[in-house]
């Protein structure tokens, strides 16, 4: 199986560990994984703000780079949603349609395509709060959003349960938005900041020290808000836990506090 591994811009620059863990994790499954070096961005920062025309060149450049794989795997829910459902400037040829259909966030890929049943290398003997980012939750359907009266399921939780010792919990307002919202956190920093503070305070009230999510953008926002307000949490991108890297990092940092 030929896998194209696309690392979105913000993950590449600010969360290389999220990409490294994802890449190393994929390689454990005997797949032919190729890092798509020449891809840059999915265009989301532009389309999100209504600048579809500015996104046009980026989207078309991206699609060219995604050609020729059986699956595209991305360590970011929000970018996966953008590629699957919002590449509005790209002509939908049969080839392009196939790319969109075979593009997956790493959680969906592990859970739905590989149908992973065990992660024997991973250990995380801690309580961790699972934050399902809004796009992963409500647009990629990785878990049941609390609003919908449908049978309960959670792909993210199912994967974390395969990790030895990992005890998954949630904030009281388990799937309320944390306020990142892309450029929202910059253009409406008062509201985004309050949402972030409310979210990290919720973790603290519930005694969580560790937080994980399939969306690093939420974690970046939450981690930086927590640090600003002196709330003691440490965030891990989900693949860091699934690949066993999170526990190594905790030990390196001096063990659980």
């Amino acid at each position: 199986m030929r896998i194209g591994f696309f690392v979105p811009c913000y993950v590449d620059m600010l969360a290389p560990q999220a990409a490294i863990s994802s890449y190393e994790l994929l390689k454990r499954f005997d797949l032919d994984v190729t890092y798509i070096e020449r891809a840059s961005c999915c265009g989301l920062p532009m389309t999100d703000m209504g600048y579809e025309r500015k996104a046009c060149a980026i989207e078309n450049n991206l699609v060219e780079q995604l050609l020729g794989y059986d699956y595209i795997v991305i360590p970011s829910g929000i970018c996966t949603d953008q590629i699957r459902y919002h590449l509005d400037s790209v002509e939908k040829t049969p080839e392009v349609k196939r790319i969109l259909e075979t593009t997956h966030d790493i959680v969906d890929f592990l859970h739905d395509v590989l149908q992973v049943k065990s992660l024997p290398w991973a250990r995380f003997p801690h309580r961790v709060a699972l934050h399902n980012g809004c796009h992963s939750l409500r647009f990629l359907h990785q878990a049941r959003p609390s609003e919908l009266m449908i049978p309960d399921f959670s792909k993210t939780e199912a994967l974390l349960r395969l990790v030895e010792g990992c005890e998954v919990g949630y904030a009281t307002r388990r799937d309320e938005c944390c306020g990142f919202g892309g450029t929202f956190a910059i253009w409406d920093e008062s509201c985004a900041g309050q949402q972030g503070l409310d979210k990290v305070s919720d973790y603290a009230r519930n005694g969580f020290r560790y937080v994980t999510s399939a969306d690093f953008s939420c974690l970046l926002h939450q981690q930086c808000t927590a640090r600003k307000y002196g709330v003691d949490i440490r965030t891990f991108y989900i693949a860091e836990i699934l690949n066993g890297d999170a526990e190594k990092a905790i030990i390196k940092e001096g063990g659980e506090k």
Binding site: H135, L137, F139, G179
Partner: peptide, 10 residues
């Protein structure tokens, strides 16, 4: 622009 695109409203 006063929206985080969380999707809960829908």
């Amino acid at each position: 622009y006063s929206c985080t695109h969380c999707g809960s409203c829908m």
